[in-house]
């Protein structure tokens, strides 16, 4: 058959020279994407430092960034210990939310009746503010860490559950027909069709749940705060507030934000790594 006549040149043969303006523009954009945020933050910090110094704001109201940095160094040991605790809490609750959300989401996608009967519980869990349930959980569960874990898990769980369930149902109906035509087994259908179709939804949920897990961990610890023995970053913030150690409060706050940013960057990177080669949400458009 003489069919190959209408093929254009394969992409690989297109020049990739150093002087290609498109490639140069792309490189510059890549650099800017790193440089600009860093520069903006540096300028904001400098401005903060300057304003505090210029207006002679007392450090128990607003500490200068330099003082916060100093506090970070002097209180490094206790702050780190707390940070490790919060990280552990966040990651464990996120992990459990993923396991629980994905398993239940699959169950929902498999059976409408199960979804219809269990979904209200999931919604109730989601809409009830965690601060309102946390005290109860702390009463019922004697181990504080486990209680905190449950609180953070409740917050992070819902987006994973609902997105997994929707994602598994979102497979293209013609592709479903194709799998039926070739008599795919239920397992093949799940593996080769439903899971890849659900992946973009799951990744979107993961980005949200990562942040929510941290919020859940911090909020729950605030509620538990007076119980004493827990040693997360939220406790450091509370404790500093009681003692009026504002720079230390800012230092702990800084670590919480840093943790949130790291989680965000990681989940974004993961999403790009997993979906980058095919899904609209992560493909960089040309032109």
């Amino acid at each position: 058959m003489s069919t190959s006549t209408i093929d254009p040149t394969p992409a690989a043969e297109i020049a990739t020279s150093r002087n290609n303006p498109v490639i140069r523009r792309e490189r510059r954009e890549k650099r800017l994407r790193i440089v600009l945020p860093i520069a903006a933050i540096a300028i904001a910090l400098a401005l903060w430092e300057f304003l505090v110094w210029y207006n002679e704001v007392p450090h128990y109201l607003i500490p200068a960034p330099s003082l916060i940095a100093k506090t970070l160094v002097t209180d490094w040991a206790s702050l780190m210990q707390s940070a490790v605790f919060t990280v552990k809490l966040t990651l464990m609750s996120l992990g459990l939310a993923i396991v629980g959300g994905v398993l239940l989401g699959m169950l929902f996608a498999l059976s409408r009746p199960i979804e219809m009967s269990l979904f209200p519980f999931a919604v109730i869990m989601q809409v009830t503010p965690i601060v309102a349930i946390a005290p109860l959980i702390l009463i019922y569960v004697s181990n504080t860490f486990v209680a905190l874990l449950i609180c953070a898990w409740i917050v992070a769980f819902f987006p994973i559950l609902s997105n997994t369930a929707i994602g598994l149902r979102s497979a293209d109906h013609n592709l479903r027909d194709l799998f039926s035509l070739y008599r795919a087994t239920p397992l093949q259908r799940l593996r080769y069709l439903l899971v890849p179709s659900a992946l973009p939804y799951f990744m979107a949920a993961l980005k949200i749940a990562g942040g929510l897990a941290l919020i859940g961990a911090v909020v729950a610890e605030f509620v538990a705060g007076t119980a004493g023995q827990n040693t997360g970053l939220a406790s450091r913030i509370l404790e500093s507030s009681f003692r009026n150690e504002i720079p230390r409060m800012f230092a702990a706050l800084f670590l919480v934000s840093l943790l949130g940013v790291v989680i965000f960057l990681f989940t974004s990177w993961l999403s790009r790594a997993v979906l980058g080669h095919w899904h609209e949400s992560e493909i960089k458009r040309e032109g």
Binding site: N174, L175, D177, L178, L181, Y192, L199, W278, H279
Partner: peptide, 14 residues
């Protein structure tokens, strides 16, 4: 049976 749908119906991830 070979079936060609109205749309190409390819798996975008593959």
């Amino acid at each position: 049976i070979g079936y060609v749908f109205q749309e190409a119906t390819l798996m975008p991830w593959a």
